[in-house]
């Protein structure tokens, strides 16, 4: 099934705006949309107020006096309980985790998906099925043995460690994505290249890759949002000084010492959500395709 139907809505007859039914439909949709937008609105409003105004006012009222100080504080000097260098530390850590994880996981999964679609071998389908089912095992079940393995390899608590973990757990969904895409390409292309004597890697690099830009975009979006939003792997495998932004954010907001600065907290929260949100707003249908693949992995 495809989530993005180019034909758009079909089925029932078009409705005239203004009929009772359409008023009800739009009414419900707008109420739902408001519910979905409130948290974003509250976040932004709170982050633009000073603390005195927060204590006096209510969370829904727009700021009387707009200040960007909380944003600066959140970025530069908010305290995580360990140090007071702001959320920017987490931002750069997340970037350092994100870029290699996305690159490695996509390279490995695309080649693997290609092998599984065009070069099947005995047992390849079995392993693929096992891979997909493995995606359903709760991470908690595999955490401790992975800690032991990464520790033995000397990569526990390092960037390399967390990158390897992201590559491993990105594999099921990405492989599925690429395999299904390559299977959908016309087999004649592959056969013709074989007849011309091209081998495994040449067909991949010269024929498959140039045709698969869209699926790579979907994969990048999927991985960028997924890895950026990760908390569990970051907190366990990255090590204290490489904590990603989500972990830093949680430490800043839920740290128990000091006076709670809600405006700074909300600014830090928006900053942490900004990367996936921007990806989401600019990628549109590719994002939807990604989550569809992520969801319909059965």
């Amino acid at each position: 099934m495809s989530l993005v139907n180019p034909a758009g809505p079909r089925g029932r007859r078009p409705r005239r705006i203004g009929s009772p039914t359409s008023i009800m439909i739009y009414g419900i949709l707008i109420v739902a949309a408001v519910y979905y937008l409130i948290p974003l609105y509250v976040m932004v409003m709170t982050s633009l107020k000073g603390m005195p105004e927060i204590r006096l006012g209510n969370i829904f009222s727009p700021p009387v006096e707009v200040t960007f100080q909380p944003w600066a504080t959140a970025w530069n000097s908010a305290c995580t309980g360990l140090y007071c260098e702001g959320i920017k530390v987490g931002f750069f850590n997340s970037m350092k985790i994100l870029v290699p994880s996305v690159i490695f996981s996509i390279i490995i999964a695309s080649v693997n998906g290609y092998a599984l679609s065009n070069w099947r071998f005995k047992g390849s389908e079995l392993f693929f099925t096992a891979l997909i089912f493995g995606a359903f095992i709760p991470y908690q079940v595999m955490l401790y043995p992975l800690v032991i393995i990464t520790r033995e390899l000397g990569i526990f608590g390092t960037l390399t460690g967390v990158i390897v973990i992201h590559t491993i757990f990105g594999m099921p969904i990405l492989t599925l994505l690429f395999r299904n895409y390559f299977v959908s390409l016309p087999p004649e292309l592959f056969k013709a290249a074989r007849v011309d004597g091209a081998g495994f890697w040449r067909i991949f690099l010269q024929i498959m890759l140039p045709m698969s830009l869209p699926i790579f975009v979907v994969a990048v979006i999927l991985q960028v949002t997924g890895i950026w939003n990760d908390f569990l792997f970051g907190v366990i495998f990255a090590g204290t000084k490489n904590f990603p932004m989500t972990v830093q954010l949680n430490n800043i907001v839920n740290s128990t010492q000091g006076v709670k600065e809600y405006n700074v907290n909300m600014a830090a929260t928006i900053l942490t959500g900004a990367v996936p949100l921007l990806v989401y707003f600019f990628s549109g249908k590719y994002f939807v395709r990604g989550i569809a693949a992520g969801a319909v992995k059965g």
């Binding site: 979905y36 948290p39 974003l40 509250v42 976040m43 949002t225 950026w228 939003n229 990760d230 908390f231 989500t246 954010l249 949680n250 907001v253 907290n265 909300m266 929260t269 942490t272 959500g273 996936p276 949100l277 990806v279 989401y280 707003f281 994002f287 939807v288 989550i291």
Partner: peptide, 14 residues
């Protein structure tokens, strides 16, 4: 769909 792009941490804190 936009909340789905946000992490559980951000969701929880908001």
């Amino acid at each position: 769909l936009y909340p789905h792009a946000l992490s559980f941490i951000v969701t929880g804190l908001v």
